[in-house]
């Protein structure tokens, strides 16, 4: 197994799926000879040519709108929105069409497409390049929202997303692109969409996170283990929608305590929905109010201040401790 960054693992997933199926078409801005601004499509243009790796005009609605047409035709477009902060120019194509073509036509037409976009803060980017607005998509009926947390699961989930018969929003944390390496097997590996993963087993408190927040959640679990001898369970959602509430509820029934972590703003964020599901499913098992550690309800600050905005291990560990204060 080769040690890979998330960028390399995603690149491998794309290359293998393109080899396997000539209906898989990549399209986006600068994804051709340039290989994408983050190099996720590196060398694919040379390998597959301009009809498989399609550089588009600088127009997000075109990328998504054309993909809808291509998917209806029977192709499997995998489009790249260069930064999720610019996906709003395609919002209507996602909401009005990608998400509802199957429903509108009672299954006659459907839109098997993947919309990849880098999201999140922590890489000292320019403004509009650091947001986490996955809640928009999780709020939209008809979409699946997948957010991997590392190279290996990113590769396996991207393969599953490409093979999925429905539109998938695939958010890739920029902070994870090159910051860690993992063993990623060359042979095919998939992960089911809609299933979370227990990243670390424990029985004292459940910490729920996804994407770039899984790492600080695990670090918080380390802190709790060191300082309080407390075994926190860390759940990595992997898919935000549909949410694997079964796993979450089972964990919280066991621990009686929960901390929900995301870098998206707090109000009406994914954490609110997760808390509501836990209240439905595990209310009588709760020993303390559920804590949320999230981005603040402000714009992600320019990068000189972004560190203060992002949830970190200390903040998460502190929230976990609060669940023990009676």
């Amino acid at each position: 197994m080769a040690k890979m960054t998330m960028v390399e693992a995603l690149n491998m997933a794309l290359r293998q799926e393109m080899k396997r199926d000539d209906s898989v078409i990549l399209l986006g801005q600068d994804i051709g000879p340039d290989g994408g601004v983050f190099r996720v499509t590196d060398r694919l243009f040379a390998e597959f040519g301009e009809n498989r790796v399609v550089d588009t005009p600088l127009a997000e609605a075109s990328i998504v709108g054309m993909s809808v047409g291509m998917a209806v035709y029977g192709l499997k477009p995998v489009c790249e929105i260069q930064f999720s902060g610019f996906i709003y120019q395609a919002f209507h194509q996602i909401e009005n069409h990608a998400a509802r073509m199957r429903w509108r036509t009672r299954g006659r037409l459907h839109v098997p497409m993947v919309m990849r976009a880098p999201y999140g803060a922590g890489v000292r980017a320019l403004e509009h390049h650091s947001e986490s607005r996955e809640a928009y998509w999780a709020h939209t009926p008809g979409l699946k929202v997948v957010i991997p947390s590392g190279p290996r699961n990113a590769r396996a989930l991207l393969v599953s997303a490409i093979r999925d018969p429905d539109p998938v929003i695939f958010y890739e944390a920029k902070a994870l692109y090159r910051s860690l390496r993992e063993d990623v097997p060359e042979e095919e590996e998939t992960l089911p969409i809609g299933r979370a993963n227990i990243a670390r087993a424990g029985d004292a408190v459940t910490i729920i996170a996804y994407g770039a927040m899984v790492r600080p959640a695990l670090e918080a679990a380390d802190l709790l283990a060191e300082k309080e001898k407390m075994a926190a369970e860390v759940i990595d959602l992997l898919t935000l929608s549909p949410l694997d509430e079964e796993l979450l509820v089972a964990s919280v029934k066991k621990t009686g305590r929960a901390v929900v972590v995301h870098e998206a703003p707090q109000s009406f964020g994914p954490g609110a929905e997760i808390v509501a599901r836990l209240m439905e499913g595990a209310f009588y098992y709760l020993e303390a109010p559920i804590e949320r550690v999230t981005g603040f309800d402000t714009i992600v600050p320019y990068f000189s201040r972004e560190k203060s905005y992002l949830p970190g291990a200390e903040r998460i560990a502190a929230a976990a401790r609060r669940t023990f204060i009676k």
């Binding site: 609605a61 709108g65 054309m66 993909s67």
Partner: peptide
């Protein structure tokens, strides 16, 4: 106007 882009996608695919 949203359907115009679907037409382009279909035509690209064809």
């Amino acid at each position: 106007a949203s359907q115009i882009l679907h037409a382009v996608g279909l035509a690209w695919a064809a």
